[in-house]
Structures are given as C-alpha cells and as structure tokens.
Design a protein around this nucleic acid. Structure first.
Lengths: 239, 239
DNA sequence: TAGTGGTCTAGACCACGAA
DNA sequence: TCGTGGTCTAGACCACTAA
C-alpha cells in the first residue's frame, strides 16, 4: 500500500493517480487496457506529465506496458528468479507438510567459521539454533542456524517463532541477499542417527549467509538426506 | 551504444543528454557528482523535463542516484545475483585452468527426459555432446549437453567451439534464463572410471535447462567429484 | 480521421542540504 | 541564503494504430 496519502497529510498527485490505476487493473488479465493518459488527465484534473510520471512508475515495476499508437495495457508478469525462502516456505511450495523440532537453542561463542561469516571476532556471542526438519513426517534435514544477537535483542527470551524468517521479517531483517554454497558429502554418525539413515549415507550440504543491506543476519548450515531432497533454482530475469 | 543518433537521422534530445552524461561519468568513482539538472539545461538548451527524462533512465538502470537537496551522483554498483555461466567461465572465475575433452558428439533421438525438457516429442533429433572437464589438469566433471538442432543449423558440421556458451552467444542464443536442479548421489562405474575415483564415490549432480525467451536451447546434466567441487551462488538484488 | 503514446517547452513553487 | 532535486502546469507537435 502507498501510505504517502495518509502519513504525509498532503497527497502527491502522481501517487494518487498511480495507486488509482494500480487498484483499477488489479486482477485484470494481461493485455487488458488501462485508462488512457488523457482520460486520467480529465478524471484527476492534472497535467499530462503528472499522469505520465504515475504510469512510468507502474511500467518500471512491470505492472503495465505501453504500446505507442494503441494504448497502455496490463503487462504479462515476468518470470522471477528463485526467491530467498525458508525451509517451511520451500516445503509448502512443494506441497509437503513442514515440521520442526528444536534440538538446541542457546547463546554460544562464535567459532572461527561463524565469526568470519558474521564479520565478528572469534568468541563473540551468537545465538545457535539447531532444528530437525521433517517433511510429511519423515526426517529430511538438520539445520544449524546462527544469529547475531546484537541485531535481535530479546530473541532468546521471546517465544520461539514458528518460522525464523517470519520473525526476521517482523523486525525488518528478512534477508534480501543470500550467499549459498552447496556440496555433496556423507553423513556423520550423529547426523545419520537424527536423519534415520546408516552412517556414511550420501547427504547434500547447504550453507547460507543471509544479509539485509550490509548486515549479516543469518548464517546457517543444513544437511539434507540426498534420497529425499533435490534442490531447485531458477536464475535470470524476465524471459 | 545508443544508435538512435545515427540510425534515426533525427537525434532525440533526451537520448543525446543521456549519452553525454553516461560518457561523462564513465569510470568515475561511486559518489562522484554528475552535472546538475539546470547545468545540463544550459548546456543543451533544452527544458528541464527533458533533462530529467534523460537522468531518469540512468537512475533506473542503476548508473546514477539522486539525493534531494544535494545533487546527482554516480551510484555504487549494485550486487548482482549469480550469472548464468559456463563451465569454463566458472573455472576461470575460480582462478583454475579449465580443459575439456570431447568424449562423444553426435545426433541422437531424444529420450523421454530430454524430450520433455525441450518440449519435443520423444525420438526427435537432438545433438548430444559429452565432455570430460578438467580443472588444473585433474578430472572434475562429466557433462552431457543436449542441444536443439533446429535452433543451431550446421552446429554438428562446424568446428567444435571452445566454449558452447560462446558459440550460443554468437548466434544470439546464450541462455538468459536457467532452471537448475542439484542433488547428491554416488558415481556409476562408468562415471567413476572417467573421474578417476572408486565406484560409489559421492558426487554432485547438476541439471540445467537453459532458455532464451521461451526457447529451450540447452539441456545439460553434469556430475562433479564432490571432493573437488562446491557450488556457489548468490541470490537477491541490490543490497 | 480520431485517439494513442513519445517528445518537448518554459516556466513555477516546494522541501531539503550545505555554507 | 543559495543550489539541489521533487513536483506540477498547460499547452504543443510528432508517429503510429485502428476504424
């Protein structure tokens, strides 16, 4: 929603036009016509440049497309690269029931790897949260998430959120940038027991550094049963 | 390059201003000031709206950023998600010497999996190109690439390109969209022999469907030695 | 021919930042 | 105080599309 209309007290005309058009075409099929520029000039009693400023924004964000000599139309949605998702979001997308069992959650001193990933000094305090993840009731993954406590005051004492990403989102700290590494390996004895496989079974390891701006908010290491999990991703933009 | 100046015969003013500014700030450090809008109005003898249209384009493409009350400046380059790279590009990025040995290249009838990936009918002709990939002389990967011959006339009879992606780029068919899957597995006997490991060694499997627009130009399946390869990727935009 | 978006003019007032 | 970008006006002519 555009809150400039409320919070500012003084509505910007191009914002008013933009949000009017956005609401008008919401849910309309690609190719549906939007109002013509001169029609909007009449309706809002503004200059045409103001209407164009409003429509420019909607064209830039991919909602509308202009065809010279014909008009302005609802654009076909662009393909989008793989979003940065949480385990529960990913499982929901696959149509599976995601469950999590907390194995450990406590304040720890950062080891060398975690400290480097956070740009902290070894020994600095971090929150360590280890969970066993299930899909449709079957063990699928062990995730060790590390969090920078400075960015998440009261996190340890609050009720554990259902979804880490939901909690981060509520704090405005949901990662918008992720640096991932993926490798194949065999399970350790401890991992094998939790995942209910024999030791030395093949697993997929996935590490992530999640950032918001320049701040590292999440460092995680996950190990998946290779017989139950294939990672998917889409790269590129548009089509 | 902006060719509207030449091909159109009649130069668009906002294009002239845009390209003038682009050339002016080329190579300048982030934070360097660009000319002010009123300065460009003077220099080109155009209206301010025309200058703003020119600068809007450069701001949208991420070259400039505006700071109200201060001016317009060269923007800090945005972080970019993992590009769709070829094996040789990826190895070069890692500072390793990439080599390829063609094991097989021929026309084949598409099997069910490849046909589905290409949106073809099973049995349709495809080009199959199998290569053993080395990094710094050591076997790293076996790649089976399948190509749609309809899109690549004469491909089989031409000299084999050093890089498949270079050849595709020359034909305007370098993928701009990729759908990948990654899984952990063990090597087959044949794979183990080529990769110079014992059978049942852990490997990373990577499949890709590469598209340009709606056209599938490449379907590939790669198998990497897990002890020598970790996949990296970056997701998201900006920072 | 009528309507559309693309381009362009020559001004204007505003809020904000720096000096 | 002065310069900056942000917003806005009330027109104009053009090329193009569709009827």
């Amino acid at each position: 929603m555009e809150d400039a209309l409320i919070s500012d007290g003084r509505a910007l005309k191009h914002v008013a036009v933009r949000e009017y058009v956005r609401g008008l075409v919401a849910g309309h099929a690609p190719g549906s016509p939007a109002p013509s520029e001169r029609e909007l000039v009449q309706r809002f009693g503004v200059a045409r440049m103001t209407v164009r400023q409003a429509l420019d924004a909607l064209v830039t964000e991919g909602l509308l497309e202009r065809i010279p000599g014909r008009g302005t139309f609802v654009a076909r949605p662009r393909r989008i690269a793989t979003p940065i998702t949480s385990y529960s979001e990913e499982m929901t997308r696959r149509g599976m029931l995601a469950e999590s069992q907390t194995l450990l959650v406590r304040r720890e001193h950062a080891g060398p790897g975690v400290a480097r990933a956070f740009n902290l000094t070894e020994g600095d305090a971090v929150v360590h949260w280890r969970r066993l993840r299930r899909a449709d009731g079957q063990p699928l993954c062990i995730e060790d998430a590390y969090l920078n406590e400075v960015l998440l005051p009261g996190f340890l004492h609050a009720a554990m959120p259902t979804s880490l990403y939901d909690d981060l989102a509520a704090r405005g700290l949901r990662p918008t940038w992720a640096e991932d590494s993926i490798s194949a390996d065999v399970a350790t004895e401890e991992e094998a027991e939790l995942l209910e496989v024999v030791p030395a079974t093949v697993v997929l390891r996935h590490s992530r550094r999640g950032l918001v701006g320049d701040r590292v908010v999440e460092v995680s290491r996950s190990v998946y049963r290779a017989d139950r999990y294939t990672m998917w991703m889409q790269l590129g933009t548009d089509d």
